[in-house]
């Protein structure tokens, strides 16, 4: 038994030493290459080629598969993943395969988030469980909200998905799908004005108006109000609430609920100074 103790200590010491030593792995020997200019082109080519070889419905012969795989690999690391997701989504939606290939190849050339926007938002727009739009409209809007979108795609996607979930959920707004689609499209026009996107502020103002005892707006008027307030930027919801509090809760002014509401709207409209924007633009070289 005495002989076991040194042996165990030796093993423990050695194990600890082993963990502390650098592993025989290139990634640890050299600093990782983060520069997006450097691509895993071989990996992308191989995965793409194997995919095209298996995708019998595309009917690509070997030279055509090689050519297509090269086209995918040209779009650098992650290209195949982007291609495959968009392609399979379009194929399963019933898109003609040559066109599905072309669109997917185009999306493989965008960054991951833009491709993900198309993948996620097209489903939200097209599927029956969500907005249930017709194919042409859903496809056009999904393109507009992904490859053609100039702002932050993550923020936009986050806003869009949350708004759709909110307005289609039975226990939430429970709007009809057309109204919901229009609301999501209207609100996401202002996503870029808000540092964290519009959803939180939109949801907040809705809850505020719905729960305010003296405002008593129906859902349609609440949505119209919320869209108008949101359109005036991130300070507008706070300004609106401050004036309601000032007029109705602090009783600083002797106004009726309607007058107070109108005043709050006027003041919240002043939250966005587009003249200032024009002045800034004038000074731009």
């Amino acid at each position: 038994m005495k002989n076991w103790l040194p042996a165990c200590c030796f093993i423990i010491i050695n194990f600890a030493t082993f963990k502390a030593l650098p592993a025989a792995d290139d990634r640890l020997l050299y600093p990782p290459i983060e520069d997006k200019r450097f691509c895993e082109s071989a990996v992308e080519f191989k995965r793409a080629f194997e995919f095209f070889s298996k995708e019998k419905e595309l009917d690509f012969n070997e030279p055509r598969s090689i050519k297509a795989a090269i086209d995918v690999a040209k779009n650098c690391t992650g290209a195949f993943e982007r291609f495959q997701k968009v392609f399979l989504l379009l194929k399963k939606s019933g898109v003609e395969l040559t066109r599905a290939f072309e669109v997917s190849l185009e999306y493989s050339g965008f960054d991951n988030e833009r491709a993900k926007n198309f993948f996620v938002l097209f489903q939200k727009l097209f599927l029956e469980n969500y907005l249930n739009l017709d194919f042409t409209t859903a496809y056009k809007l999904a393109n507009g909200l992904s490859k053609d979108y100039k702002g932050d795609p993550i923020k936009l996607r986050d806003d869009f998905v949350k708004i759709v979930d909110l307005c289609t959920a039975e226990k939430q707004l429970s709007l009809d799908k057309k109204t919901c689609a229009q609301l999501a499209l209207n609100l996401t026009k202002y996503t870029e004005l808000f540092p964290k996107g519009v959803f939180e502020d939109f949801n907040d103002i809705i809850k505020y108006v719905q729960s305010h005892k003296r405002l008593g707006l129906n859902i349609k008027d609440t949505l119209n109000l919320a869209q108008r307030v949101i359109s005036k930027g991130p300070k507008a919801p706070t300004n609106f609430k401050k004036i309601i509090a000032f007029t109705l809760e602090e009783n600083s002014l002797k106004l009726t609920e309607i007058q107070a509401f109108q005043l709050a709207l006027v003041i919240s409209d002043l939250s966005f100074n587009d003249q200032e924007d024009k002045k800034i633009n004038k000074h731009d070289p």
Binding site: K85, L89, K92, S93, G94, Q123, L127, E128, N129, N132
Partner: peptide, 14 residues
């Protein structure tokens, strides 16, 4: 008319 995929049809790619 249009026949759309269901969420289940797309489960393997989501």
């Amino acid at each position: 008319f249009t026949v759309k995929p269901t969420i289940n049809d797309l489960a393997d790619i989501n």
